[in-house]
């Protein structure tokens, strides 16, 4: 028996209808949208140009300048040094080498310590080689304001320092700020309450002006900027530094 209608033909018709209804409509809508967008842009052309020019003036001029400089540069020919110039070239080479060697000789062979107060790290060098690195603690940058306009800034002094003294089992003579910070009355200069034993670790190296490299009881704070200007180190690091540095050794803080 013959079917009432061809199923394939129906499918094709349905597909075409679908195409017209869906894609045709989308195309139509897209065309309308595009026309309207172009129309809007055309109407707002002056405002768009104004905004574009403002952007160019603000951000683009510098880039254009750099592009212009790039165009000005014409790379030279990579020609070899000619014979007549060879002697002069060798002289320049020798002079450069001598300047380089002179500069390199400034690095000391003796032991010296470098402290990064931003990252709270230390680097111990000997014979121009890094022999030990680790964490330390440096100044907290706290500005303590006390009574009678007295104030203290707890920062580690940057620059080149030298070891001025070395002590084992150091005793801490507490300065005035140590009492002010805790809300305690300031005792007389040599009062017994000023002396604290065992809080600075086993060794201390003095850098002058009251600043020291020493140990600490608060090991959990090592690596953080928590001190009053001194440099706190872990026990093993302190021992290694104490043994490596002698009086007069350089300590560079940055």
């Amino acid at each position: 028996m013959k079917p009432l209608f061809n199923i394939n033909a129906a499918k094709i018709i349905l597909h075409k209808l679908q195409n017209y209804l869906v894609y045709g409509r989308i195309k139509e809508l897209a065309a309308i949208f595009l026309r309207q967008a172009i129309d809007s842009i055309w109407r707002a052309r002056k405002a768009i140009l104004l905004i574009g020019l403002c952007f160019y003036v603000f951000f683009g001029v510098q880039n254009l300048q750099e592009l212009f400089v790039k165009l000005m540069y014409k790379p030279g020919n990579k020609q070899p040094v000619e014979n007549q110039e060879l002697n002069e070239y060798q002289l320049l080479l020798k002079e450069t080498e001598r300047t380089r060697t002179k500069f390199s000789s400034l690095v000391p062979r003796s032991a010296y310590l470098v402290i990064n107060s931003t990252e709270n790290e230390f680097f111990l060098y000997k014979n121009r080689e890094l022999i030990r690195t680790g964490k330390c603690s440096t100044g907290s940058y706290i500005n303590l304001k006390g009574e009678n306009n007295k104030e203290w800034v707890f920062k580690t002094p940057k620059g080149m320092h030298r070891v001025r003294g070395k002590v084992t089992d150091p005793v801490w003579k507490k300065p005035d700020w140590a009492f002010v910070e805790e809300g305690l009355p300031i005792p007389s200069l040599n009062h017994a309450s000023r002396y604290e034993y065992g809080v600075l670790g086993d060794y201390a190296l003095s850098l002058g002006d009251g600043y020291m490299l020493h140990g600490t009881l608060y090991k959990r704070f090592i690596g953080l900027p928590v001190t009053h200007g001194c440099i706190r180190l872990g026990d093993n690091d302190l021992e290694a530094i104490f043994k490596s540095l002698s009086i007069g050794s350089k300590v560079i803080i940055y």
Binding site: N143, L144, G146, V180
Partner: peptide, 9 residues
């Protein structure tokens, strides 16, 4: 220098 002002207790 990230200085912070702290008033003494």
């Amino acid at each position: 220098e990230p200085i912070r002002v702290v008033h003494a207790p």
